[in-house]
Design a protein around this nucleic acid. Structure first.
Lengths: 111, 111
DNA sequence: ATGATATAACACCTTTTGGTTGTATGTCAA
DNA sequence: TTGACATACAACCAAAAGGTGTTATATCAT
């Protein structure tokens, strides 16, 4: 699973649902691998591979803290996605803004 | 290449550079497969497969026009990406806005 | 010193991806 | 009606993606 530390492709990195969830977990806190793994039904090895993909897309960075390695998120590479999106949507900005607005205000369907 | 018409995953669909480029080509115009193929170094069959992925992610839709099939873009599914991005960036909005601003104003590096 | 923890490093497996070629089918134009 | 064009469909292939398990190594607590 991307064993060679190559391809820093952000789009590729966020293509996997597990990796997106990992990212969300690391938004506001720094977590060790074991704790991240606990939230998923897959093996630690698999999680580590996902972490490697995220890391060489520079979306997360890890530091060793004693016997554990703690990861934190780095949002900067997401700017590339944001830009691409803005460019791709530039002709329908009205329609899309409307859509987003609708969804955002439907979070916890208050009747 | 996603032969079965399944997985309408938008993130997956835009993960491939070729597919992203196809999308950009179809923003403002409707194009036949042959014309799309002409812009890439790969075979028409390969392009068609990419089109299928984009189509069942509902990012494009095709209609037959005589002997050719013309595709056009549909931006709505991108809203999901947009939302996710907004959520993932919610703690760093300042930093990211700054970044984007910088890049956008560096398009054709005017000295 | 010893055992439990946390990670690292391998080797291996299966399915999906991205690509190829070849053959058939429908459609326009002369 | 006969090509030339545009697409459709099928079979095949190599490599990457996503996963598994096993074994080793460092570190903390007792």
């Amino acid at each position: 699973m991307a064993q060679p530390a190559e391809k820093p492709d952000v789009f590729q990195a966020i293509a996997d649902p597990t990796r997106r969830e990992v990212l969300l977990m690391l938004i506001d806190k720094e977590l060790p691998i074991s704790e991240i793994t606990a939230h998923f039904p897959i093996s630690r090895t698999a999680v580590v591979k996902h972490l490697l993909v995220l890391e060489n897309a520079r979306l997360i960075s890890g530091r060793k803290a004693g016997r554990e390695k703690r990861y934190r998120m780095n949002p900067e590479p997401l700017a590339e996605v944001s830009q691409w999106l803005a460019y791709a949507e530039r002709f329908w900005s009205n329609k899309l803004s409307m859509l987003q607005h609708l969804v955002e205000h439907d979070d916890k369907k208050q009747p």
